[in-house]
């Protein structure tokens, strides 16, 4: 039996057991209990309408799989690009000096640009972690079919290495420090 049913039943039992007139205080209390029961019933209906089961068994797993696929595809594409660059570099010694320099300059820029794969991979990893957290919380809703139980709160983090506790990157462009900011911060220690 769910919480809303329990409260409704309790109110009914109280009402049927009462003989004589209710005091204003008792009337107020019973009215509040009745309101609470209705609120709980409404919340349960709203949660049912959310189709929590669909979200947990279909939407979130599909979304995380898609994101994993994005990471895998970009990794493969990046490896292909790097293969091609390394092939060009091997040709450089056989070329006239100016051409070889141009080739090396171009491949350097490509190598630099390819680091996008690492950054996007980490960002997508953060999104997947967030989705899995939502999935866990929705599972609790599904089990209890009622208000969030207190166990839905994050477990206390103990014995977490400092490096793990501070590992929250990559930062979003709006809040990320530039290399100049980092240099300046490091210099402040000297």
């Amino acid at each position: 039996m769910h919480d809303g049913d329990t409260v409704e039943q309790a109110v009914r039992q109280v009402l049927t057991s009462i003989n004589g007139d209710l005091s204003p205080k008792e009337t107020l209390l019973l009215g509040e209990l009745q309101g609470l029961a209705e609120e709980i019933t409404r919340a349960r209906q709203e949660m049912a309408a959310l189709k929590v089961v669909d979200i947990n068994t279909s939407h979130i797993p599909v979304a995380t799989d898609e994101l994993d696929a994005v990471v895998a595809h970009t990794a493969r594409a990046t490896d292909e690009i790097l293969d091609a660059c390394e092939g060009l570099e091997r040709l450089a010694p056989a070329l006239p000096a100016a051409s070889a320099t141009a080739i090396i300059g171009a491949t350097t820029r490509i190598f630099e640009a390819c680091s996008f794969q690492d950054i996007t991979g980490q960002r997508i990893g953060k999104v997947v972690t967030a989705l899995k957290s939502i999935e866990d919380r929705l599972r609790l809703v599904e089990e209890r079919f009622g208000p969030f139980p207190s166990s839905a709160t994050e477990p206390a983090r103990t014995d977490v290495p400092e490096g793990r506790a501070l590992a929250n990157g990559p930062q979003l462009p709006a809040t990320a420090a530039s290399q100049a900011d980092i240099d300046s911060l490091l210099a402040s220690f000297d």
């Binding site: 630099e112 680091s115 996008f116 690492d118 950054i119 980490q122 400092e162 490096g163 501070l166 590992a167 929250n168 990157g169 990559p170 930062q171 990320a176 420090a177 530039s178 290399q179 900011d181 980092i182 911060l185 490091l186 220690f189």
Partner: peptide, 25 residues
Amino acid sequence: TAESKTENVVAAKQAGVSNYIVKPF
């Protein structure tokens, strides 16, 4: 690293890092 928050740089410096490069570089 992509970890560019001040607290990260400070923690690395306190741990004895020689230099720190933020991705992408």
